[in-house]
């Protein structure tokens, strides 16, 4: 038998992504056995994050400052905006160190099934940002899924009047992908988007 306090902790930990009831129990035990080295610092970090981290009113990224560090960075390219579905996608693109522009987080994708329409996404803010004179390109980095590309096509229509260049991420072979192991859809898309070498 464990105390209600521990059960409550396990219950909350078990709701986190990647953690089930068993792993939540192990994490709770780990924290409680290492109160000073793990539990107290975690508590402090959680409190600080809860108090200070907010969505950026410009792009929707999470940060302790508003505008976020990316939007406020004068070194970043102000001519390009990369549109992503969610913050995790923004972080994934930042890990590549390949894009030095700014971002816009939509907060989801158009989905008839889930009842998500254009008014549920941060599209009005994107259209307003695309109208800024310094912006010359919008990169649509939505998923290569029916919902992702439906959203991309919708955004292309909405942004058409802004006159900025609109591009999307390439579809096709992943780096390290062997043809024999790829699904037909990926292979077909790669064939359609083949590039001339000579």
């Amino acid at each position: 038998m464990t105390s209600p306090a521990i059960e409550r902790l396990v219950g909350h930990l078990g709701k986190l992504p990647g953690l089930g009831p068993r792993s939540a129990r192990r994490a709770a035990l780990h924290l409680l056995e290492r109160r000073e080295s793990h539990l107290e610092p975690l508590l402090s970090a959680l409190r600080t994050a809860a108090e200070s981290v907010r969505p950026c009113t410009t792009c929707g990224n999470l940060d302790a400052q508003d505008p976020c560090a990316i939007c406020a960075d004068p070194e970043r390219d102000r001519t390009a905006i990369c549109v992503v579905e969610q913050i995790a996608d923004l972080w994934a693109l930042e890990r590549t160190l390949m894009f030095r522009g700014r971002y816009h987080v939509l907060g989801g994708l158009l989905s008839a099934l889930d009842g998500i329409g254009p008014e549920d996404l941060a599209i009005a803010g994107l259209v307003a940002r695309a109208g800024a004179p310094e912006v010359s390109e919008i990169i649509l980095a939505t998923s290569a899924t029916v919902d992702g590309q439906t959203t991309a096509h919708y955004l292309t229509d909405r942004l058409a009047e802004s006159g900025v260049a609109i591009s999307r991420l390439a579809h096709g072979l992943p780096v390290g992908g062997e043809l024999d192991y790829l699904d037909d859809g990926t292979l077909g898309t790669a064939l359609k988007a083949r590039q001339r070498l000579l």
Partner: peptide, 28 residues
């Protein structure tokens, strides 16, 4: 198991992709 991947072939064609989504949503 996949028999035929149709969605990926229509991703770059906005009207046909919209038709595919509409047909599936209406059937559902």
């Amino acid at each position: 198991e996949l028999v035929r991947a149709r969605a990926s072939l229509l991703l770059d064609d906005p009207p046909r992709l919209a038709a595919l989504a509409a047909v599936c949503a209406l059937t559902e």
